[in-house]
Design a protein around this nucleic acid. Structure first.
Lengths: 182, 182
DNA sequence: CCCTGGTTGCAGCGATCGTTGCGTTAGGGA
DNA sequence: TCCCTAACGCAACGATCGCTGCAACCAGGG
């Protein structure tokens, strides 16, 4: 019953799901979020509005579903041999991903509709960060807390992306690793 | 013609403006942002919907106006004699302000509607930070860059408020000053 | 005191939204 | 291959939204 996860993974349901998700992302980049309604999304996706209402119910749930798909599986956890190298590579990738206006628009919209919208954007990032720290810990190194790493690495990055208009380039993001690890 | 700034500061216009702003804040705390429409806001404020449409035009502009008023003038810049003391006191105040669910709901909604929504939430904070750093510089002390201070102080604070469900308490926020100043 | 410009209330309109019931189609198992 | 169920399309409905005339009102200046 989880919204957006069809019981039939392949076939028409998957096509409809992909078309609707793509329609949301396209509309968010082109127009203001004000005009983003279910019928408009359905028309862009080439799908009947009833289908969108029945599968997702609310614009908020649909946006959360889009955010969850958009921010999952797009970045792979690097393995350079050292925690510092992993974090620097990873931060560069995350910053590059956030530099896309399309990505930013999806994230803004997901935040605006409810509580779970923001969490859906960073859930995978937290899991990746925990995986890197865990691997380093299993190698015997002393690692910072996951909470602290998220605060000092993801905090400034996402803050810049949302609240300022400064482009968060990959090099600057890599420099944040120094703040965390000294 | 700037939205939300009446040419007549006193009188009925100001009363209507205050009533509408308060209605937006109340509705954001009670219900989901989905049902936040102009007629609903007008009904809560005891004002005709036409008035809201004519003064603000769009829900996005109204929310940006509310955010700008909400995050301006509520926190005073402290003056403890040292930059570290100023920053610690100020961070505690900002964290306490952000801990209010009402404040958080306004911020989320403002972010969701457009580009300027996020900037309206932190414009005053950046000005206050710049004022504190400027005062310390005029005393002869060496101060970090405003950008860097915002990254390391406001970044983790706002990141936690929006993307996680951990309560950002004042004590933790004061501890962030150590990261910036050593 | 009156006058002038800006602001609000009111009624009504077209358009769009969100829902419901029913028929049809496509996908997957026997 | 055939069937069966879940998913989709379709048409219609009431409700609500956003906008536009016009009239009334209030705040400030001559």
């Amino acid at each position: 019953m989880t919204a957006g996860i069809p019981t039939r993974p392949g076939g028409r349901s998957a096509r409809v799901r992909a078309a609707v998700h793509r329609a949301v992302e396209e509309l968010l980049t082109e127009t203001s979020p004000d005009g983003l309604t279910m019928p408009v999304i359905a028309a862009r996706a080439g799908v009947h509005p009833t289908t969108v209402y029945r599968r997702w119910g609310t614009l908020g749930e649909l946006l959360a579903s889009v955010a969850e798909s958009r921010f999952s599986g797009d970045i792979v956890v690097p393995d350079t041999g050292s925690l510092r190298g992993d974090l620097e590579t990873w931060m560069g990738d995350v910053a590059t991903d956030l530099a896309d206006p399309d990505t930013l628009a999806v994230m803004r919209a997901a935040i605006g509709v409810g509580e779970e919208g923001g969490c859906a954007c960073v859930a995978d990032r937290h899991a990746q960060l925990a995986a890197m720290l865990e691997r380093e810990a299993s190698r015997g190194g002393s690692v910072p807390d996951v909470e602290r790493a998220a605060d000092l690495l993801l905090g400034p990055l996402y803050y810049r992306a949302i609240f300022t208009d400064s482009p968060a380039d990959a090099g600057w993001a890599r420099g944040l690793v120094v703040v965390l690890m000294g």
